[in-house]
Simulated assay, not measured.
Amino acid sequence: MKKYTIDISHSTLSFSVRHMMISKIHGTFESYNAEIAAANIEHMQDASISITIDVASVSTKNHDRDVHLVSPDFFDADVYPKIVFTSTYIDKQNDKTFLIHGDLTIKNITKPIVFTTVYTGNGVNPWAQVYGFQAKTQIDRRDFNLVYNTILETGGVLISDEIDIVVDVELSPL
């Protein structure tokens, strides 16, 4: 098994959520690390993936909202400082598409999720061969005890329960 690292300067761990049910708020996590190993990263089937995210690194480009997200109303970063994803198995759908099954842990609650993942290609930079992937999934934030919300006068809610997650990574061998 060959080990790989994420090029953080060319990768993004992002999420989006509906605000007032009319627009989407986008955010990222700026600090994370990963352990990735595979015999053949392009075929992905035998890959082992573990990603640990620093909750306090959340960024929505709004300081007050970011402070609220790390508070006990949401992530409670002082008590639960990390989000962890660990792959359990991978199903190859075709040459470039994979379903990465794994366990996502937020606030010490672990739930199985599936990322639909596309191999976006490879290239050579001045230092190494690099490989690109995009992975997408959707979670229900209530499954992880992220339940803060406000009822609007119009009858809707301030924040949707569904969170879209998109991970764009550029990997290089160690």
Rank of each mutant, 00 (worst) to 15 (best):
K96Y: 14
L152E: 09
H43A: 02
V70T: 15
V79D: 05
T12P: 03
Q134L: 05
F75M: 13
P173I: 07
A34T: 03
Y4F: 15
I151L: 13
T97K: 15
T117Q: 05
F115C: 02
T12H: 02
F29T: 04
V147W: 04
L174Q: 14
T120M: 11
I109E: 11
T137M: 05
K24R: 15
D164A: 12
I41A: 11
Y131S: 13
Y32M: 02
I36C: 07
T88I: 10
I22A: 05
K2M: 04
V124I: 14
T97L: 09
F75K: 05
V118I: 09
E162D: 09
A34C: 08
D66W: 07
S14L: 10
D164W: 03
K111C: 01
V17A: 11
H63K: 15
D73W: 07
S50V: 14
Q45G: 04
H68C: 04
N40R: 10
Y4E: 13
A128G: 00
D91M: 10
D73C: 02
Y119C: 01
I90H: 06
V58K: 01
D64P: 07
G102M: 08
A34W: 10
E170V: 12
Q93S: 10
S48G: 03
V147Q: 08
D66M: 05
I49D: 01
M1Y: 15
Q138A: 12
I41E: 06
V147K: 15
I159G: 00
Y119K: 14
S11K: 10
K136V: 12
T105Y: 05
L171P: 00
G156F: 03
H63P: 00
D76M: 07
D164T: 06
T117H: 11
I106S: 00
I106M: 10
I106L: 01
T12F: 02
D140C: 06
D91I: 12
G155A: 13
D78S: 02
I113M: 01
D73P: 00
D7L: 10
I165W: 10
H10D: 07
P173N: 13
Q134W: 06
D7G: 06
H10W: 00
H19K: 15
D164K: 04
I36M: 05
L171C: 13
T28Q: 12
A77K: 14
E153I: 02
F74V: 12
A128C: 03
H43C: 00
V124N: 08
K3Y: 15
L13S: 03
E35P: 01
L13N: 04
M44W: 11
D161K: 07
